[in-house]
């Protein structure tokens, strides 16, 4: 009963929130200064400057208009009410994942995950400039949630049962899957069954690298420590395909427009969810509701078009959220 009540009340909120989201997105993409550098120079620069870039974060850009105050009220004591009255929220995301969460040169993360997070923080009535993004690399996503250092994590975060034992997931909001990236002019490789005798690149010790061993046993595997090297090797013609989650492959395509394309059907399923503290079902439901609303009112599509859509214009149908009982 209470659930449906909060839901109907919140319905009024998005109208105001959309404007705020739009202006943020426009501001971010309009002045987007990142230009794809070429080849080895980029790799070298990345190797040298990687650590520097990581520390150059944290300047608040408060030029965005604060979101208009909303009339939404949340049940007393709920996470939503606490966040709303604090009027601030901390979101964990990737800072190094193009199209999903990548820090731009002004130090702000941008990408699909960031836009999804904005949809939720707007629904909570938190002004855009009060949303604090922190970097969560893969290994510290669960610890950060458990230690309440972040309120939610939107970070190419695959939902699985092992993780569900320590955190809860809203969503999924996107389904990634392992697939293949080839040179734009490639015709011989059309999927994982056409890889016999071909050189396939992935990252040493990664799950996709192990999966391709069984899925395409006749392919010759070349392994690097990062995917950017695979992309470079692919461009140079030293390997014939790169394989990992399409989310990562799309990012590689974004940094070198026109050089590559994706081929074949995905041969794994990686549902990306929004990680929150274990047991906060109220908050989880709220996020699921917000996602479903965004699916239908165009905000999800806008988020997609502004980010992933620039590389892969065909938007997949948004996945049904999984309101599992824990």
């Amino acid at each position: 009963m209470r659930m449906s009540l909060t839901r109907s009340k919140r319905r009024t909120a998005p109208t105001d929130a959309i404007d705020a989201t739009d202006s943020t997105t426009r501001a971010a993409s309009g002045s987007r200064p990142r230009r794809p550098l070429r080849g080895a120079a980029l790799l070298l620069a990345a190797a040298l400057a990687g650590s520097l870039a990581l520390s150059a974060c944290g300047d608040d850009d408060s030029s965005d208009e604060p979101a208009a105050a909303t009339a939404t009220t949340f049940p007393a004591g709920s996470t939503m009410a606490k966040l709303q009255s604090a009027s601030t929220i901390t979101v964990g995301t990737k800072f190094d994942q193009p199209l999903f969460g990548l820090k731009n040169l002004r130090g702000e993360p941008e990408g699909f995950d960031v836009e999804i997070a904005r949809i939720i923080t707007d629904a909570l009535g938190i002004p855009a400039d009060k949303v604090k993004f922190v970097e969560t690399v893969s290994a510290n996503r669960e610890p950060f949630i458990e230690q309440h250092r972040v309120d939610l994590v939107v970070a190419t975060y695959t939902i699985n049962d092992k993780r569900k034992q320590v955190v809860d997931f809203a969503g999924p909001y996107y389904v990634a899957g392992q697939t293949l990236m080839v040179r734009a002019g490639e015709t011989a490789i059309t999927g994982k069954d056409t890889l016999a005798g071909k050189k396939v690149c992935s990252v040493s010790g990664s799950t996709p690298a192990e999966r391709i061993r069984t899925q395409a046993p006749d392919a010759e595997l070349t392994l690097f420590d990062v995917y950017s090297k695979c992309a470079e090797a692919l461009k140079a013609g030293q390997v014939d395909a790169v394989t990992t989650d399409n989310a990562i492959l799309l990012g590689l395509m974004d940094s070198d427009p026109g050089a590559f394309k994706l081929v074949g059907e995905p041969f794994s399923t990686e549902p990306y969810g929004i990680g929150i503290a274990k047991g906060d079902d109220e908050f989880r439901t709220f996020i699921n509701d917000t996602l479903e609303a965004a699916y239908t009112d165009g905000r999800y599509e806008t988020a997609y078009k502004d980010t992933i859509g620039k590389v892969e214009p065909d938007m997949p149908t948004p996945p049904a959220v999984d309101r599992y009982t824990s």
Partner: peptide, 14 residues
Amino acid sequence: AAFGVQELTGISQR
């Protein structure tokens, strides 16, 4: 191991 050769370190990672 970071440059396409599966030696001890690469194997260990795997």
